[in-house]
Simulated scan of single mutants.
Amino acid sequence: MTDAVLDDEDAVAVHHAHAVWSCLTEPGDGVAGTLIGEMGPVDALRAAFEGGGPTSPSLDAGRRRWRARLESIDDAFDRARRVGARLLVPGSLSWPTALDDLGVHAPRALWARGGPEPLGVEASLALVGARAATGYGEHVTMELASRLAQRGVSIVSGGAYGIDGMAHRACLSAGGVTVAVLAGGVDRAYPAGHADLLARIAAGPGVVVAEVPCGTPPTKWRFLQRNRLIAALSRATVVVEAGWRSGSLNTAGHAAALGRPLGAVPGPVTSAASAGCHRLLREYDARCITSPDDACELLGADAAAPEASSGRTDDRTRVLDALSARSPRAADDVARRAGFDPDEVRGLLALLELEGRARRGPGGWRRASPAQ
């Protein structure tokens, strides 16, 4: 259950104390973080429950909250053992030090299914976005995640439906490494429809992690706090598709607060699903991301790195060949001619429209002439 062999009594005590604090606190508990920072996890536990430590109204309130959870510790450990979850704690060799940038709001520990190695990958990018993703958003995510994975970039996301799920699946399909950060315990597949996907990630070489112990249900608050971990674990964050009030903007806010590079993918100006991305571009100085090269520049990686799939047929060219310059065609007709799924071809058509190579009219889609 631990991420290292502990052959020192003090190390065992510190490791256990971090685990206990993880069970007692809600994500981002700054009161506990301050106490642990001042006293260390072991002495902080004594001060919290045996007295003799500092006192203040916030600490007294914290003690009441923490005591109410004491009985949950044994159950959390039992659940972790049953699913083979590993415990990573600050200061251990496998601890992702990027999380320390969160200061007193850093997690007390991480519970992980899968190897911890992906958490230390230098080139890691968060790809996040709406659960109610469009065909356009899913296609852009698929292209970014797969091609970045082929360049050795680790993809970090939240395991949710929509953009998150597509990012994980595309990365796995390309043979890449992906990290899923959950809002609930790693023993609970959430959403339930992604149980198989999360199991594939945990089987390696990816990892499924959470700061809350096993048995903890996801809640709205925990989702919002989870987003800070996605931002902190990544060298840069890209929002692919997001509505005006999407939770993905919360992740973007954490990335900006941490000083991590932030990017956003533009969408059709008529699409409410991209309104949040346009807001990031306009108001928060996000970089415009339209290709894997753009994302690599955001990471500071070599944008000219070769891709394993560089010789494959370009999907957009196939769709462009299925269009007529004179007669508009319905998206379903274009899909049939190009050999794509209708939902997938709509995403490709939207990309071609952004590039000015296709035009949409009342009668359907057609190829744009050079003059246009």
Rank of each mutant, 00 (worst) to 15 (best):
A255F: 06
L144S: 05
N250P: 03
E241F: 07
G243C: 10
A256L: 15
P218S: 11
P268A: 15
L262A: 05
V212H: 06
V179T: 11
V265H: 00
V179I: 15
A160E: 06
A167P: 03
W244L: 15
R235F: 06
D187T: 08
A199F: 10
A149K: 02
A256R: 15
A273T: 14
V265N: 00
A199N: 14
C214M: 13
L262V: 04
P205S: 10
E143H: 13
L144M: 08
E241V: 09
R228E: 09
V181L: 01
T219H: 09
A236N: 02
G267F: 05
L224P: 04
S248V: 03
R228F: 10
L233Y: 05
T251C: 10
L182M: 13
N250L: 03
V181E: 00
V181R: 00
H194L: 07
C277L: 03
Q225N: 12
E211W: 07
V212K: 04
R245N: 14
A257L: 12
A189S: 15
A232R: 01
G243F: 07
G158P: 02
P268Q: 13
A192N: 12
S234C: 11
V208S: 03
G165Y: 10
A256Q: 14
A242Q: 02
T219F: 08
A180R: 00
I155A: 01
E241H: 07
A242P: 03
L172H: 00
T141V: 11
G158E: 00
C277P: 03
V181Q: 00
A203P: 11
S146C: 05
L198N: 11
G253D: 13
R169S: 13
V186I: 13
G175I: 12
A231N: 01
R169I: 07
G247E: 06
R147H: 13
G259M: 09
G185Q: 07
A180S: 12
S154G: 12
V156G: 01
A180H: 04
I163E: 00
T270D: 14
A255I: 08
S248D: 06
Y190M: 10
A167C: 07
H194E: 08
R260K: 11
C214K: 08
A275I: 07
H168D: 04
Q225S: 14
R169A: 13
R188F: 11
V156D: 03
G158L: 03
S154Q: 13
A275F: 04
L144D: 01
A170Q: 02
C277I: 06
A273I: 07
A273R: 12
H194A: 08
P213H: 11
A257E: 15
T141I: 03
H168R: 06
R226H: 10
T237F: 00
T270Y: 12
E143S: 14
G184K: 08
T219E: 12
G158I: 01
A183N: 05
A231D: 06
G247I: 06
C171K: 08
R169Y: 02
P213R: 09
A272D: 14
A272E: 15
T219V: 13
A202G: 08
I163H: 00
L233K: 04
G184M: 10
A231Q: 01
L249P: 05
I163K: 00
